[in-house]
């Protein structure tokens, strides 16, 4: 009720929590096949009152079934779920008016998510300027969008998932039972932005499984053309053809002779990236990866490797690395 339906101020009491727990006694699983099983012998058969609804004694499994219906039809649940959807599709500061409007659709349609989402994505708020690229990508979205932009091959090893964890969002590894946050302030901080930038450089260097400039469809047309043409091509391919004038100028500055002198000798304008590293889980990286523990005392999933060793980038690879590390790429 607190985390997934009514919400913390959704109008339930500690008594309701206890009554729901009593209603769900006997709900269990078969340890052999993981299937649901109701065990009447451990069910509390006495009568209960859940959120004002009386559940008569001796109804067995129906207690739990009714609890699900009562909770799903509660007005706080409509508001709670609609708020999450508005936050996800429009902006972090979900407009109370839009939540009210679409929560009434949720209630009217008996919880039809498609109709609720339709209400949101056809609203003026959804199309407003303020909502355009208002959302900051989660680490999962950063990795998925970078790999999609690179037309990467799907990775069948755990390494890509470990990269998502390294960026702060171990898949299925949220410590608290509320699920990963869908707000920028939870994902944007000093350490997080650094990891995202290093991730972008690692992708451009061909260190992330499945992603390589060799197999990037745009490479064919962008190799060997002028820096401005490369920059415009990369902005189109990776930043959705939208970047600030500052970003474009900085991506272009690879040609600047002042910068060239500062850079190490190998940045001669060739389109080079590191040799792909088939497996990078070696010495130092592993030690660093082991550096953390989860709440239950078990090691956190972590893969330090591809983000730790410095990259060598030049030409098109450099433009791609800069674009993936840019502020624009952090938004969706």
């Amino acid at each position: 009720m607190e985390l997934h339906t009514l919400g913390v101020d959704g109008g339930y009491t500690q008594k309701d929590v206890i009554e729901v727990a009593r209603a769900l006694t006997g709900w269990s699983m078969n340890p052999r096949d993981g299937q649901f099983v109701f065990r009447p012998e451990v069910h509390d058969a006495a009568d209960k009152v859940v959120l004002g609804h009386k559940l008569a004694a001796g109804r067995g499994i129906d207690d739990g079934e009714d609890v699900l219906d009562i909770v799903a039809r509660h007005p706080s649940t409509a508001r709670f779920i609609t708020t999450k959807l508005v936050r996800h599709f429009v902006s972090d500061s979900a407009s109370p008016a839009l939540v009210r409007e679409c929560a009434s659709i949720f209630t009217k349609t008996d919880g039809d998510i498609r109709e609720t989402v339709r209400c949101i994505v056809t609203s003026p708020e959804f199309f407003s300027r303020a909502a355009y690229r208002a959302k900051v990508k989660t680490p999962f979205e950063v990795v998925a969008s970078a790999l999609r932009a690179m037309n990467a091959q799907a990775d069948t090893t755990p390494r890509t998932a470990q990269l998502v964890a390294r960026l702060g969002q171990p898949i299925f590894g949220r410590q608290t039972p509320d699920g990963w946050p869908d707000r920028a302030d939870a994902w944007m901080n000093t350490g997080a932005i650094l990891n995202r930038i290093n991730f972008g450089l690692a992708v451009a260097a061909g260190r992330v499984p499945g992603a390589s400039l060799e197999t990037w469809p745009y490479s064919t047309s962008l190799r060997g053309v002028s820096r401005p043409a490369q920059v415009d091509g990369v902005i189109k391919a990776i930043l959705g053809d939208q970047s600030s004038t500052e970003t474009r100028a900085i991506l272009l500055s690879g040609e600047n002779p002042l910068i060239e002198k500062l850079a190490s000798a190998d940045s001669s304008g060739r389109d080079t990236a590191d040799n792909p590293m088939p497996d990078d889980m070696s010495g130092q990286a592993m030690r660093q990866a082991r550096g953390a523990v989860a709440k239950n005392g078990q090691p956190r999933p972590n893969a330090a490797s591809p983000l730790n060793r410095p990259v060598n980038l030049a030409g098109l690879a450099q433009v791609v690395g800069l674009a993936l590390g840019s502020p624009e790429f952090q938004r969706r």
Partner: peptide, 28 residues
């Protein structure tokens, strides 16, 4: 707050000049 696994990791991992350019990207 700064959260990090190690001090070594707290840098832009490149041998080239990308760090300066990325810094410029974020300081517009």
């Amino acid at each position: 707050v700064i959260a990090m696994n190690s001090l070594d990791e707290f840098s832009i991992r490149t041998n080239g000049s990308e760090a300066e350019r990325i810094e410029a990207l974020y300081r517009t």
